[in-house]
């Protein structure tokens, strides 16, 4: 495993931990999109179907368990925890996320590397992950004033995607057996581009040491 891949996984892990920290210690999920969290839980559930059938490494299995466990506990907190769920911005978080799921499933049925259940589900998770952040970005845009932890959460997620792209470029040149993976690459690139606008405002706010505020 190369340094970019590891750094990508670590920023991904940190993003989830920042979110859980916010929810667990402040007992608030204000500014967090439940729609995006539901999509991520679905992404992990669909992608990690091989968790008990195919062994890659201890690292791989442990990380998969962490991502599955954390995404479903975030859902539990936001839907069931009696204090946390009251801070959920339900009226602002109105993105029709179900309309993302169906096109991704259709696309996975049409464009995949192998027409098997596991492979189609894996491809579906790749497509869905590319757009899963949209409800969160729309919610940030609506709230405009973004608190520090929510800003850091989205920033870390974007950093994870950016590092994965560098990891693919590195693997392409460094590993002789590594072939082209258009489905993952194009989806990953699209996903990273979705963060570009947010990144611009986030970095400016850090540089000027002011609270992150998105334009209307």
């Amino acid at each position: 495993m190369n340094i970019f891949r590891l750094a990508g996984d670590m920023t991904h892990l940190m993003s989830v931990l920042v979110l859980l920290l916010k929810i667990h210690t402040i007992k608030s999920c204000a500014g967090i999109s439940l729609k995006t969290q539901e999509l991520y839980a679905l992404v992990f559930a669909a992608r990690y179907l091989d968790i008990f059938t195919h062994y890659y490494s201890l690292y791989n299995t442990v990380m998969k368990l962490i991502f599955l466990g954390s995404s479903f506990s975030i859902l539990w907190y936001m839907k069931r925890h009696k204090v946390v769920r009251r801070s959920y911005d339900k009226d602002q978080d109105t993105f029709r996320h179900h309309f993302l799921v169906l096109p991704c499933l259709v696309l996975a049925l049409l464009i995949n590397e192998k027409f098997t259940f596991k492979e189609v589900m894996w491809t579906f998770s790749i497509y869905l992950e590319a757009v899963a952040i949209l409800p969160q970005l729309v919610l940030l845009q609506r709230t405009r004033n973004v608190d520090n932890l929510t800003g850091q959460y989205v920033f870390l997620l974007g950093a994870y995607r950016g590092l994965y792209i560098i990891n693919w470029i590195y693997r392409y040149f460094a590993e002789p057996t590594y072939s082209t993976h258009w489905i993952t690459w194009i989806s990953g690139l699209l996903q990273t581009l979705l963060y570009a606008d947010f990144f611009y405002y986030y970095i400016n706010s850090v540089k000027n040491n002011v609270r992150l505020q998105l334009p209307a």
Binding site: H54, Y56, N60, K64, F67, W122, N167
Partner: peptide
Amino acid sequence: HDGTKLKDEL
């Protein structure tokens, strides 16, 4: 090429 090759990533 094995379609499951990239699955070592998360």
